[in-house]
Structures are given as C-alpha cells and as structure tokens.
C-alpha cells in the first residue's frame, strides 16, 4: 500500500488561509510528522494493536490533527492513530492541519477534548491536560472555565498536586497507571530521589500493598535509612528483606506481614521486644477467650485492664476461679514487674 487517505472527508478541503485558528485538511507524508514532540500528548496509552485492524480495513475514520512547526508538523490529536499508520507501513495520511501561529490555547483544548470527551482520563492524563491548559491559557479565569468544560478538576487544593503528577519519575507514573499507588503516595515518592522512588514502586508492586500499608512501609524504610545512614535501595536489597521477598512458598499476605514485622523490629527494637515479651507472658497465662488483659498504651502508664466476657453467673464464677489461678501465675508477676 502506497498511501491511503481515509478520513471520510475530501482531502482537498481547505480552510481559509487567512485564519490561523481554522484547520484545513491535507495529505501529509508521515516523515514530515515529528512523532517525538509530545507537547500536546494527553494519552498514556502506547500500544496500537487495537487500532491496526480497523485502520487497515476501514482507513482513518477520524483524521489526526496536526500543527505546523519549523520542520514539518507536530501532533495535536491522534498520536496512536499515526503510530498505527506507521506500523502499517503507510507513507502519508490525511490530517487536519493548523497553522503555526494558531491560538495555542485553542489547540490545547482541542488536544484535551479529543481524549477527555471520549473516555475518563487517568491521573497522568489529567495531569498532562491541566499542565497543557495552564501553560497555554491567557489567564487563570480562562484556565478554570476551560478546565471545567473539559471535565478537569479545578479545586485549588487539587490542581497543583495533580499538575505535579506528570512531572514525576516515569516509574512512579507507571505505578499510578498500574493502580499500585495513588496520587498521595505518588507525591510522597516524588519528594525522594528518582532511583529510590523507583525502587519503592517496585517494592510496592511486588508486595501488592494498599495505601495505608504503603505509607507504613515507606515511613519505616525512610526512618531506618536516615537513622542508619543507608539508602532505601540498600535496605530493600539487603538479605533479610530479599529472603522474605523471594520466598515464593509463602502466601503474599504472610510475606507482607513478615516484611512489616521485620522493618518494625528494626525501627523499634526495644518496643518490639517488649511487645513480644508481653505476648509471650500473656500466652503463658493461658487466659482463654473470655479474658483479655490489656497493657497500658505503649507501656507508658502503669494501669492494666482486665476484660471479662461471660453470659451467666456460672460463667462468671468460672472466670473468678481462672483469675485466682492467674493471680498466682509467675508470668503475671513478670508482666507487672516490667
């Protein structure tokens, strides 16, 4: 196939040459299109396999939109369509072309609308759209109005954070796109060195942990690393963690628990030991399901609580006997002695 113009519109249709804003349709050689210029790229999808069959059999139903630049054309809409055409071996396509001097704000809205009006944008795409709009809009009011009409967030508390997302290291963005991390965690990771963030995203993906656990693990890793003057990457690469991570014989939930326990013990060795000692002694007391012994919070206070669960007098009487036994047990003395 030499070339194919299949936009369903006459290829010779031109707009007024005097108007910078109005596009005209024309046939453009693919070699003239700069595919590397991602100024107007909103989509995060790179694969084109889903488009190949349709384009091959029906042609380009919707012509891509281009804008003239110093060396040819940049893509405004249709990054994937053009990539598919290249993959199909086409030499040229029919596209709608804007003049180089066209209103950048209008072009930006076109690029965003082409994506946002077809499907919900993901977080990275939203971020790209907001940045593109902010960079081209003449003022804040027009930015807000355009964002609103395109279904983008306009809250002052959200916009700056959302705009930050597409500037983060690519592995963090990939973490968002894979659903492993959310905006809040992405921004946290964005404060770290890119290599460290990359290691953490990999760590979270491997463990498949939710946001709360991610936060806990990040805090533990960060504080251990700072205290011990090692990098987070080194910590993750150390044998104890790797042994747990590479142990495929254990369930993922157990793996997560083991990782958390290991990090907590390393971050809080004295507290972890006290908790373990306490649990060991409570087990020695053999309290059963009807009695709970609650230590002072963080072992800071000195008051313990004993909770009894019973249904009738006999139950309570039995518990009373159990309590008598507990009172004489050496483990209770050990607990109270601290």
């Amino acid at each position: 196939m030499d070339s194919k113009s299949s936009d369903g519109q006459p290829g010779s249709e031109n707009s007024s040459p005097d108007s910078d804003s109005v596009a005209h349709a024309d046939t453009v050689a693919l070699t003239e299109i700069n595919a590397k210029d991602a100024t107007f790229r909103i989509t995060t999808r790179r694969q084109v396999e889903d488009l190949l069959d349709t384009i091959q059999s029906l042609g380009l139903l919707h012509p891509p939109v281009l804008i003239e630049d110093s060396s040819g054309y940049s893509i405004v809409c249709g990054f994937r369509r053009i990539a598919a055409c290249r993959q199909l071996g086409w030499k040229s396509i029919t596209a709608r072309i804007h003049k180089a001097g066209a209103d950048r704000f209008e072009i930006a809205r076109l690029a965003i609308a082409d994506n946002a009006l077809q499907r919900p944008l993901n977080l990275v795409e939203t971020s790209r759209a907001l940045n593109l709009l902010a960079d081209t809009s003449p003022d804040q009011q027009q930015f807000k109005e355009a964002a609103l009409s395109l279904g983008l967030p306009i809250s002052p508390s959200v916009v700056p954070k959302a705009r930050e997302i597409c500037r983060l290291a690519l592995p963090i963005q990939d973490g968002i796109l894979s659903g492993t991390i959310n905006m809040s965690m992405a921004l946290e990771l964005g404060k770290l060195d890119a290599a460290v963030a990359t290691a953490l995203v990999g760590f979270f993906i491997q463990l498949k942990v939710g946001l709360n656990k991610q936060r806990e693990l990040l805090l533990l890793l960060t504080e251990i690393a700072k205290r011990e003057d090692v990098s987070i990457q080194q910590l993750i690469a150390e044998k104890p963690l790797q042994n747990i991570l590479q142990n495929t014989a254990i369930d993922r939930a157990v793996q997560r628990q083991n990782i958390r326990s290991y990090l907590r013990q390393r971050r809080y060795p004295a507290i972890s030991k006290a908790e373990a000692d306490y649990q060991k002694r409570v087990r020695q007391l053999n309290l059963g399901k009807q009695i709970q012994l609650v230590p002072p919070k963080n072992f800071e206070g000195t008051t313990y609580a004993l909770t009894l669960h019973f249904e009738n007098r006999q139950d309570l009487s039995n518990l009373n006997k159990r309590i008598e036994k507990i009172l004489g047990h050496p483990a209770l003395g050990e607990i109270l002695k601290r």
Binding site: E223, A270, I271, K297, F299
Partner: peptide, 19 residues
C-alpha cells in the same frame, strides 16, 4: 527524631519508658 519514641498520655513523643 528517629529513636524509639512513643506518644505519652500528654500527647508528647517520649523515649520508650525502659530506655
């Protein structure tokens, strides 16, 4: 701040009592 602190009943962070 990376030592072993707990939150005391007054809301302040303190070293774990045995320490």
């Amino acid at each position: 701040v990376y030592a072993e602190f707990i939150k005391g009943p007054d809301g302040k962070m303190r070293y774990f009592k045995p320490l």
